[in-house]
Amino acid sequence: MILSLSLRRFLALLFAVPLLACSGGASDDGKHGGPVVLAAASMHDALEEAADEWAGQGHARPVLSFAASSAMARQIEAGAPADMFVSADEAWMDELEEGGFIRDGSRAVMATNALVLIGPSDGSLTLDPVSGFDLADALHGGRLAVAETESVPAGRYAKAALSQLGVWDSVKDRLAPAENVRAALLLVARGAAPLGVTYATDAASEPRVRVVGTFPAHSHPAIRYPVAMVATSKAAEAADFRDYLLSDAGQAVLAGHGFGPAEQAAHD
């Protein structure tokens, strides 16, 4: 059974604090652990490596927690202990900023990404996502794996692209919705869905899938990852880790995982 959006938000609020309380985050003075970072699921591999690099410089390793940006934003609104938030879109960061949940002056675009159509790695299908392309036929009776399209950034980007290209109506009743982009990726990787829509970085991280086509940048809002400090953060090193992610060294780690540089955001 697919949960309604309101029920999913209620559950996110209900379990937010217990979930993070078990993650071993920093104390109020930040001395007993690294800063707690809530981040978009698509940032998993890149931030894990960045955290290792940061810890290798003698800092306490950040405590990382990953899920859909929507779920993480709701946790912050519910008062979950956190020091930093990395969103896969501007909208969720906007909501937190408007609500006073992030620290003034700490917001910055950290990375960019692209949207792709994926299929199994042993397939040979190639599609060019242009206006009116026959995506429904390419599913061969199967379903299209996407992150939830009303609140999760990857799903909203997918819906925007498919709508702009004129194929949304032909596939909207043939979706395999997932709680985040990594879950959508796994549906294709495990053969549960013949095709899916993910970020380019997720496709590159999973050897069981291949890129079938790349959505044109004009078909969806620019995919930007803003980072900001949570307003209630007291962890001493949280701001320093944020600055590291925006530095040349941090950007090199992100680039190694396929993310575009933050500078691109100024030209979109």
Rank of each mutant, 00 (worst) to 15 (best):
P194R: 05
R210A: 12
G191Q: 02
A158W: 00
A160E: 10
L187H: 10
V211N: 06
K172H: 12
Q164Y: 07
A161W: 03
A160L: 01
K159C: 03
V197D: 00
T149I: 14
P177V: 01
A160W: 04
A200K: 15
G166V: 04
P207N: 11
A176I: 04
R210L: 08
V171F: 00
A176Q: 12
V188W: 03
S170V: 05
D202N: 15
R182C: 07
A204I: 08
V167R: 02
V181C: 10
E150Q: 13
S205L: 07
A203V: 08
A200D: 15
A193C: 05
N180S: 12
S205A: 15
Y157A: 11
Q164A: 15
R182L: 14
S170T: 14
D169G: 06
E206N: 06
S151C: 09
A176E: 12
A176R: 11
A192M: 10
R174D: 08
L195W: 03
A161L: 03
E150S: 14
L162T: 00
L195E: 02
P177C: 01
V211R: 11
Q164S: 15
R174Y: 09
V167G: 03
S151I: 13
V197A: 02
T198W: 10
W168C: 01
G191D: 09
S170H: 10
A154I: 05
V188G: 04
V171W: 00
A203I: 10
T198E: 07
A192C: 08
S170C: 02
L165T: 02
R208L: 13
A160D: 10
D173M: 06
A178K: 12
S163V: 01
L185I: 05
S170I: 05
R210N: 10
R182K: 13
A176C: 02
V152L: 04
R182N: 14
V211T: 13
W168Y: 03
Y157V: 09
V188H: 06
Q164E: 15
V152C: 05
K159N: 03
V188Q: 04
A189T: 06
G166I: 04
A158H: 01
P177Y: 00
L185Y: 08
R190A: 13
A154G: 11
K159Y: 00
S163P: 02
R190K: 15
A192D: 13
A192L: 14
W168Q: 04
A203K: 03
K172T: 09
L175G: 07
A160F: 04
S205I: 05
V212R: 04
A160N: 10
E150G: 13
L162W: 00
T198V: 14
V212S: 01
D173I: 01
K159Q: 12
A158T: 09
G155A: 01
R210C: 08
V209A: 02
A161T: 06
A184N: 08
E206W: 11
G155L: 00
L187T: 04
R208A: 14
A184Y: 09
Q164L: 10
A204E: 12
